[in-house]
């Protein structure tokens, strides 16, 4: 016969499992971050550049914050554009509904 303590433990275990599953389905909490090296394209006027930098992705209340803190712009074609080898950084937020639609 089960003791009350044993039943209580089982209930807690179920609760923890349920909460764990719920948090897994909802993803990481707001404020969570992850970073990854990214190569992307930048256009300034009619000149095309490529930037290789570590992008920081942050889950925000409004969506996905994308922050590129530093990177250098290298001209894709020659002769090099006037911003060749200049520093580039950018920040923007992709709306939550876009994330919801595709992921």
């Amino acid at each position: 016969m089960r003791t009350p303590r044993c039943s209580c433990f089982g209930l807690c275990l179920c609760l923890c499992l349920c909460l764990g599953a719920a948090s897994l389905a909802a993803g990481a909490p707001v404020g969570s971050q992850t970073s990854q090296l990214n190569t992307f394209s930048v256009n300034v006027d009619d000149f095309a550049y490529r930037v290789n930098a570590t992008a920081m992705y942050t889950r925000t209340a409004g969506g996905l914050g994308v922050s590129i803190p530093a990177g250098n712009m290298f001209s894709v074609v020659q002769p090099a554009g006037p911003q060749n080898n200049q520093a580039y950084s950018v920040f923007f937020t992709i709306p939550q509904d876009v994330i919801d639609r595709f992921f």
Partner: peptide, 21 residues
């Protein structure tokens, strides 16, 4: 560069998004 134009093309990897959402 004020008044000049700027554009950007970036692909955010699946893993980076699925890790957060």
């Amino acid at each position: 560069l004020a008044g000049h134009t700027g554009g950007l093309t970036i692909e955010i990897p699946n893993a980076s998004i699925t890790q957060l959402f």
